[in-house]
């Protein structure tokens, strides 16, 4: 069976976590080597999805491991090391996204669907291509989805990535962002609506 980056089972397996953790807490260099080499590919993929480029992802991953190394003494081992580190990487990315002056994008209002005064859609929705697409077309579509997600305003892009790509629950995303669950729900819906608008020219029947 073919494995992908997201399916690679964490090599730091559950039963071995306690032993590895004990070695890490003793400062065992080989244990750190194993931890970093085994988990960094998956964690780097998470950081790339959140940050949008390799340089920022590298910086965030480095921040995350520095934080994790400092917090290792307090880690009680009740969750898996891979889960704990995933959360730290997400938080490191969020910190960088908050602090960086990211390139200006359009506002969400500029992207969202428009309606006329009586509440009808300003333009009739077009039918999207359906059915299985050939592999190169599927790859083209994935690229388009990634590019369009990158065009969303930062706050909306972040929520969409946490909920729909990283598959966090509303509760987890709200905790990571320090916001209410209702705010996360509203923003996720608007992010999806905006992404749908951005994908419309690519996906409308006859465009592929």
């Amino acid at each position: 069976m073919q494995m992908t980056a997201n399916e690679i089972p964490p090599p730091v397996a559950e039963p071995g976590d306690a032993a590895l953790l004990a070695r890490l807490k003793r400062g065992d260099a080989a244990a750190f080597e194993s931890l970093v080499r085994d988990l960094s590919p998956r964690l780097f993929a998470v950081a790339r999805r959140m940050m949008g480029n390799d340089q920022d992802a590298s910086d965030a991953l480095q921040d995350a491991f520095v934080s994790a190394f400092k917090a290792l003494g307090d880690f009680d081992g009740r969750s898996r090391l891979s889960t704990w580190l995933h959360r730290i990487v997400v938080n490191a990315c969020l910190m960088r996204l908050r602090s960086e002056k990211r390139r200006q994008r359009r506002t969400i209002e500029e992207i969202l669907p428009r309606f006329v005064a009586d509440g009808h859609a300003a333009k009739s929705a077009s039918a999207w291509e359906s059915g299985p697409a050939a592999a190169p077309v599927r790859e083209e579509l994935r690229r388009a989805v990634r590019e369009k997600i990158d065009e969303l305003p930062e706050a909306y892009r972040t929520v969409l990535i946490l909920r729909d790509i990283e598959q966090m629950t509303t509760e987890q995303a709200a905790a990571a962002l320090g916001e209410s669950e209702s705010a996360v729900k509203t923003r996720l819906h608007r992010a999806r609506l905006a992404l749908r608008e951005l994908l419309d020219p690519v996906m409308s029947r006859g465009s592929l």
Binding site: F44, D54, L61, A121, E139, R142, V145, L199
Partner: peptide
């Protein structure tokens, strides 16, 4: 039609994180 395209938008986004993105495996960290 709008609802269909909304569902497709969510599906395509989720595929980026679900492992269905096999053809474009991210590069390992440098």
């Amino acid at each position: 039609r709008y609802i269909d395209s909304y569902r497709r938008t969510v599906e395509m986004t989720r595929e980026l994180g679900s492992g269905a993105d096999a053809a474009s495996l991210p590069p390992p960290p440098p």
